[in-house]
Design a protein around this nucleic acid. Structure first.
Lengths: 203, 203
DNA sequence: GAGCTTAATTTTGTATACATCTTGCTGTAA
DNA sequence: TTACAGCAAGATGTATACAAAATTAAGCTC
């Protein structure tokens, strides 16, 4: 519900209401809420229950830096390990992504973009690394709306993806790591621009 | 209790027994256990309760890589931001660490070592980054026993720390990041050696 | 005596009841 | 009309009771 935006950031979670809508009693509901709190999706205040976590602008920008470090490591680990078949799969995703881009299909573009990055993490074969990435993505899940990026930023993203393919084909871990860190850094800048435009519009 | 080793990895958590020792009822105890599960300290099996998470050798080595990436980022962020006072504080910790080393005070050595790294994360000023590090440290907390490192490995660690001080003084983020990644990589190797020695002894 | 089946006990999962705390409303007084 | 106090309603925190699943033990058969 939080991911779908049915519960907006900052809003309080009423246990009884949630229990009714899920048809469970308060005990398992509370356990679930505590689990979400541990993941950082909701915050608990003593004697005042749970509310959906607020993600500040600063936190969003912070998370891009951390994801960048994680993606960089994933790239370093993946490059020397990738098989021809896996490389071919990523190339297929990349082609599909470009196609979706040409068709102005933003959701499709992001789907394949996501698959490429997922594949790199899978190949890196480090469960903890994947887990850390998942936790961060869960926390800033409300950020899906950041999807709207400007025209010139597309070009940057795509050219970086092509550099990634070259580094992967060369099994060049350090270079791929560096590209991914740069890739995420430029994504961070895009989001920063987007956020500042947002706050201007609001003001 | 898990951190203190009172509950060994793999052992099951008996709710009733824990409730009695903590003098609370099962409801809050279960919520607490769920919170630990979300942090990865215990694992839950449906209808079979919770047991202390087993940390495999592979997981330990994985975590060093991830911590390396995080420390590297912390260094990159901290170097351009550090003040003279903070730099002086780290130098003091470094001196104290060397002193503890000379006195063969292992616990003291690790205390100041930890403080140096903590300081870098504090200066980096990225809450998520600190949080991710904390989560990983919690998961492999049982690893404190890895403290016993060999003589020649001390020298490597200390010389790397001195390189770190130079990079910090130069406000050179990329270099500090690289040193920290290398630092954690050599720590990983140390632990890998230690673990293989352990399994030899057991066999 | 060993292995399988079944019953009993323990243990986990869920629901409900009670206690405590917060909060919002109402009434009174200035 | 506004501010404060007291009360009531609701929500959270905790304890206990009940149901379902798993483990253990006993009994039976081979």
């Amino acid at each position: 519900m939080i991911e779908r935006g049915e519960l907006t950031p900052g809003s309080k979670l009423n246990e009884k209401a949630l229990c009714e809508s899920f048809a469970v009693s308060r005990t398992p509901m509370r356990e679930g809420i505590r689990a979400l709190a541990a993941e950082g999706l909701v915050v608990l205040t003593p004697n005042r229950g749970a509310s959906v976590a607020q993600v500040s602008e600063a936190q969003i920008l912070e998370s891009f830096l951390v994801i960048g470090a994680l993606e960089g490591l994933a790239g370093e680990l993946a490059a020397p390990r990738i098989t021809e078949a896996q490389l071919e799969e990523i190339r297929t995703h990349h082609a599909a992504m470009l196609e979706r881009r040409a068709a102005d299909d933003l959701d499709g573009y992001y789907l394949y973009n996501r698959r490429i990055h997922d594949a790199i993490f899978d190949i890196a074969d480090n469960a903890l690394l994947k887990d850390m990435r998942r936790i961060i993505f869960t926390r800033i899940i409300n950020l899906r709306f950041i999807a709207r990026i400007a025209q010139d930023e597309w070009e940057t993203a795509i050219s970086q993806h092509e550099e990634m393919l070259v580094a992967l084909a060369n099994r060049d871990g350090p270079t791929l790591g560096a590209i991914l860190r740069r890739h995420l850094q430029s994504k961070q800048l895009q989001v920063a621009h987007w956020l500042s435009r947002q706050s201007e519009t609001e003001a």
